[in-house]
């Protein structure tokens, strides 16, 4: 198969970017999208078509759809046209021979471009650090089967926990909102008894960090759900909103001074 690729090239975070066009030929339909980019980079390196040689920079790692590292915006869709799939799992058979394919990085204020197609998603880590966990220190926890979780709730928690933190939801959203990402984590712990003691603090801290980092607000377009490679449902956003409201109505953490010392 032959393709024309229009790829966003940008030297570094401060430089001005632009599209560059590349022709690529004889690609097997069984080749994955990232392998097709590997072939392009090999061509740039071997044939030295343009000087200085500068392969296209893109993030990738596991190439089996789970690490969340790959992040390409293809023909107007995060992770490309195929639903429920990360770009590393998209194969060229999903395109037509002769297609022109436009490849861009995630675009969001909170995800600055590093080089070409690589972006900085450390904002996601910062949100998790605010409370996207259960503060169980190592050791001193009860036997695993002493905490019962109904299968229904365990399954729903797992649906939320399947989020790979790739940022497609943000890239898909016209407001660059991170609601689906944050909601997936809040919802996972709201559905599990282990998560309840910290529930109020968690949702408030994570939401306020999200706002602080420059993510936009949610206007219920559901683009995030449509583009999520793991099919995370917007139901989790609804659950997070309930959690948030509940916490605002009932949560008043008092500072207490002193102790038993």
């Amino acid at each position: 198969m032959n393709f024309t690729l229009k790829i966003w090239r940008q030297e570094n975070s401060k430089a001005k970017g632009r599209f560059k066009t590349y022709k690529i030929e004889n690609i097997s339909p069984d080749c994955s999208f990232l392998e097709m980019l590997d072939i392009l980079n090999e061509k740039l390196i071997h044939d030295k078509i343009e000087l200085p040689v500068d392969p296209v920079a893109f993030d990738h790692d596991c190439r089996e759809g789970i690490c969340g590292m790959c992040s390409l915006y293809i023909n107007g869709h995060p992770h490309g046209p195929e639903q429920g799939t990360t770009v590393c799992q998209v194969h060229m058979r999903k395109f037509q021979d002769g297609d022109t394919i436009v490849i861009e990085p995630w675009r969001a204020k909170a995800f600055p471009i590093i080089k070409d197609l690589m972006v900085d998603r450390s904002a996601f880590d910062k949100i998790i650090q605010e409370g996207g966990y259960i503060s169980a220190s190592t050791g001193g926890v009860p036997d695993a089967n002493s905490i019962l979780v109904s299968k229904e709730y365990a399954d729903m928690a797992m649906d939320a926990a399947a989020c790979i933190g790739c940022g497609a939801c943000v890239a898909a959203c016209k407001n660059a909102s991170a609601m689906l990402f944050v909601a997936a984590k809040v919802s996972q712990f709201a559905l599990l008894p282990q998560g309840h003691p910290e529930a109020k603090r968690r949702v408030q801290a994570m939401v306020s960090k999200m706002d602080e980092l420059g993510f936009g607000s949610c206007t219920n377009t559901y683009a995030c759900e449509a583009e999520c490679p793991k099919n995370i449902s917007v139901e989790h956003i609804a659950r997070m909103n309930r959690e948030f409201l509940k916490s605002k109505l009932t949560h008043a953490e008092k500072k207490r001074i002193g102790g038993f010392g």
Partner: peptide, 22 residues
């Protein structure tokens, strides 16, 4: 065995049966 206890305490959503056990 401590590992499983620890992970459950952290909220790892392991598969469960209908009675809620692992």
């Amino acid at each position: 065995n401590n590992i499983i206890d620890q992970c459950v305490a952290q909220g790892v959503p392991f598969a469960r049966d209908y009675a809620g056990y692992l």
